[in-house]
Deep mutational scan, measured.
Amino acid sequence: HNGKLCKLKGIAPLQLGKCNITGWLLGNPECDSLLPARSWSYIVETPNSENGACYPGDLIDYEELREQLSSVSSLERFEIFPKESSWPNHTFNGVTVSCSHRGKSSFYRNLLWLTKKGDSYPKLTNSYVNNKGKEVLVLWGVHHPSSSDEQQSLYSNGNAYVSVASSNYNRRFTPEIAARPKVRDQHGRMNYYWTLLEPGDTIIFEATGNLIAPWYAFALSRGFESGIITSNASMHECNTKCQTPQGAINSNLPFQNIHPVTIGECPKYVRSTKLRMVTGLRNIPSIQYRGLFGAIAGFIEGGWTGMIDGWYGYHHQNEQGSGYAADQKSTQNAINGITNKVNSVIEKMNTQFTAVGKEFNNLEKRMENLNKKVDDGFLDIWTYNAELLVLLENERTLDFHDLNVKNLYEKVKSQLKNNAKEIGNGCFEFYHKCDNECMESVRNGTYDYPKYSEESKLNREKIDGVKLESMGVYQILAIYSTVASSLVLLVSLGAISFWMCSNGSLQCRICI
């Protein structure tokens, strides 16, 4: 991952900044910058967002509201009850120091605090018919004063009620008058409520006091790749198909172990950190130390980045220098085999997901714990399936590479015959000098055995068991695999060879 928040398929997220979902939807004055928000790819909250409900109280069923919003990608904020005409018999300019803005008392931008007009609070009834052709999110509140005197001074009615009804919602609220500790300079409380109004449905408000009335509502448009994440990451000019709280993932790998919460087309989250597919040879310690064997393909974004291909070729060293050249036929066979294998694994496992966190309130801790156990169970199954699949494929890959290298080895052996000696570690020792032209003939299969047989015969008789390297004779190393990324691999195959001279070296080696 890149540690950044990015656009998702070209669409920017909605960053709530210092506000949370509650503050944004109710219209906390400190969240005025969010009022123009219309569309987004996903919503970003920060872990310690401080601006929620400015007048103390709870947004009821907040967790369910977050779940609903996680599939919303755009909205239209509109005046559901026009301020100047909807409440002619009531005062609608209630403000509070708890919702101060720029040093002055204020109130929510989407709600109206209705109080008595003169000395009376006549029963009010108002309704709205949803003609938007889509779901409408309606929010309101109920004020709970701290004393009967406060109730009387604001609403005149000691036994007030609030009723809200639609086809799918029907509740009646009565204020709970009680002494409470002071929070944000208030002994009173406000509880906030919401409902989704279906197209064509009607919502009716009736009250004799204590109503925090809707002013603006939201017509919602769903987008199934949307979601809500909690993150401290910063926004950058970048684009992605998959976003996590820790950063964007741009990967076609089937798995990731970065974060379980994802938005967009994302690899499946697994616990494993070692889900690797081999593309090189079986481990040979001396070669492995030099980083030549054991190439791997990573299938977990965050564990290993991208696929690494092994390729086969020849390396030689003689009086004229040293050089490398790919054996294109065996390399292409290996590439085709690995590509098919990788595609097979991805096809089997690479279903892209959006995974969002589930919200539970403080009273639902047991449910949250149960949900976590269920999620953990599914996660263990996914991890096991992934590891088992790759384990089985790896064994076949190792066998496949062994065969490829063996074929190259036999190709060289059949040409050199007794003009060189096998020394048991995949290397041959020449009994004759071999210049670049000679080396090329070994690589392309045109090695002239009779041409060098007499010199080889004489050297075999002279050496008589002495280690060949100390006599200045020449080696050919018969097994060799270097490691390159897919891009470098293609470039390498396009070149005939490249040279690395070893000044004054008397050794001649050709490596497979």
Rank of each mutant, 00 (worst) to 15 (best):
Y431M: 15
L292A: 07
Q246P: 07
C266L: 09
N318L: 05
L403E: 08
I296L: 13
G313K: 06
K417F: 13
H259F: 04
P245V: 08
N318C: 04
L370N: 06
S485R: 04
T273I: 12
F378V: 05
Y447N: 08
I496K: 00
W304Y: 11
T262K: 02
L398Y: 07
M500Y: 00
P285Q: 04
P450I: 14
I249S: 03
F498E: 14
R396F: 04
K451F: 07
Q475F: 10
T482Q: 05
A334M: 06
Q332K: 05
V491T: 15
S322N: 11
G357V: 08
I423D: 08
I476Q: 01
N418Q: 14
E387P: 03
Y409Q: 09
N418L: 11
D402A: 13
M235Y: 15
F299A: 10
K268H: 06
G247H: 09
W304S: 03
G321M: 03
V412T: 15
L370I: 08
V466K: 04
I296C: 10
L468I: 14
G310Q: 14
P450Q: 01
C238R: 01
N250I: 08
N232H: 13
A297I: 05
L370C: 08
A334P: 09
K372V: 08
N503M: 14
N404Y: 04
Y431Q: 04
T339R: 14
R271P: 05
I249R: 02
M367T: 09
T351R: 13
I463K: 15
K451H: 10
Y447H: 11
V488Q: 02
I300F: 05
L458H: 09
A478C: 14
S272F: 05
N239P: 00
A233M: 15
I287E: 06
E469G: 09
G494A: 14
S344V: 11
L468V: 15
R460S: 10
Q317I: 14
I296R: 00
I510M: 12
I512W: 01
L468P: 03
I512K: 00
G310T: 05
F400D: 07
P267W: 04
N436I: 07
K413H: 10
A484H: 06
E410N: 15
Q256T: 07
V270T: 07
N252F: 11
T273G: 14
Q475M: 09
Q332G: 03
I338T: 08
A248N: 11
N425P: 03
K417Y: 04
N404T: 09
H401E: 08
W311A: 03
W304R: 10
L493C: 04
